[in-house]
Simulated assay, not measured.
Amino acid sequence: MPESKSERWQWENATAGAVAGFATVAAMHPLDVVRTRFQVNDGRVSNLPSYKNTAHAIFTIARLEGLRGLYAGFYPAVLGSTVSWGLYFFFYDRAKQRYSKNKGEKLSPGEHLASAAEAGALVCLCTNPIWLVKTRLQLQTPLHQTRPYFGLYDALRTIIREEGWSALYKGIVPGLFLVSHGAIQFTTYEELRKVIVDLKSKGSKKDSESDDKLLKSVDYAVLGASSKIAAILLTYPFQVVRARLQQRPSSDGIPRYMDSWHVVKETARFEGVRGFYKGITPNLLKNVPAASITFIVYENVLKLLKNARTD
């Protein structure tokens, strides 16, 4: 039975999203390592070296741990990001199609928000174990006294043996709150995209010219960066809470933080508001250009797939 047009379109979105996610991770992973280490360093007892700033952190990790340190957790990051982006665009597009089925093509901001939130929640439930492993691998340094994890499979096996299956879902609560990050980003992207298309269509001689022809890679870069900044500023504290919850327990098996509320109380008490934004500089350096790359790749891969389909 041949695929329907809507099914083919969904898989094109999934493919474009997966390719975009891989390109993003490969380019920006060292900044992700630095961000994670800043996030969990609460200024008290720590197995992490002390870093003055983002540049100092990168040079210190490179000097003490080499390329392996800068790319700690790379495999789960590639797997998690590729799967996440692929699933995200797939679920997001399905949700948009469902909302627009009986009312034409245009969706309201609220429907874009609901579509993105739905996709984000499904992706979070599917990928939390991968992000847990990525965080723990990134936090392994020569200062650790416990037996290190030797990769993704060994980490999963050790976590299940030592902490049980439930440990794979540590950080799921702030992770679900982080669904709002994708919702904010995609809603901002879609609304700004409409504004740019409207402005360009007014200056275009061909009123019937499609959005694909009106928008160029530089437009996708600006849209991706702008939407990402808005999402980061509003949701970053949830990332800090999640990273702190996902740390490996000490050698006696006692976790540093018991739950999300414990993280919030301890961070507010000892570090104040600044504690909830630790690591935001490398996060912006990583994610703002990464968002531009992601949407440039995504939109252009989508164009190629659409052109191949119509040829």
Rank of each mutant, 00 (worst) to 15 (best):
V78K: 01
R37W: 09
I159T: 07
D219K: 05
M258P: 00
G69T: 08
R37A: 11
V301C: 07
S227K: 00
K286Y: 01
A72M: 06
L113I: 03
V40K: 05
D93Q: 13
S260E: 08
S50P: 00
Y257K: 06
V25D: 00
E209K: 12
L113F: 15
L122H: 03
W9Y: 13
S100E: 11
V34Q: 07
L245Y: 07
E299Q: 13
D211I: 05
R37Q: 15
G175P: 06
V263F: 06
G279N: 06
M1E: 06
G275T: 03
T82F: 02
T146Q: 14
K213W: 07
A55R: 07
T294S: 10
L156E: 02
R242Q: 13
S100A: 15
Y51R: 11
P148T: 12
K306N: 13
M28S: 11
P30I: 12
F238K: 00
V301P: 03
F276G: 04
Y92V: 02
L48G: 07
N13A: 14
E299L: 08
S166R: 09
F186V: 04
D212E: 15
S226P: 04
N307H: 04
G224L: 05
F22I: 10
Y71P: 08
V301H: 01
S226T: 10
W165T: 06
T135G: 04
P129L: 10
G21V: 05
K286M: 11
P255T: 09
V123I: 10
D93K: 10
Y149P: 02
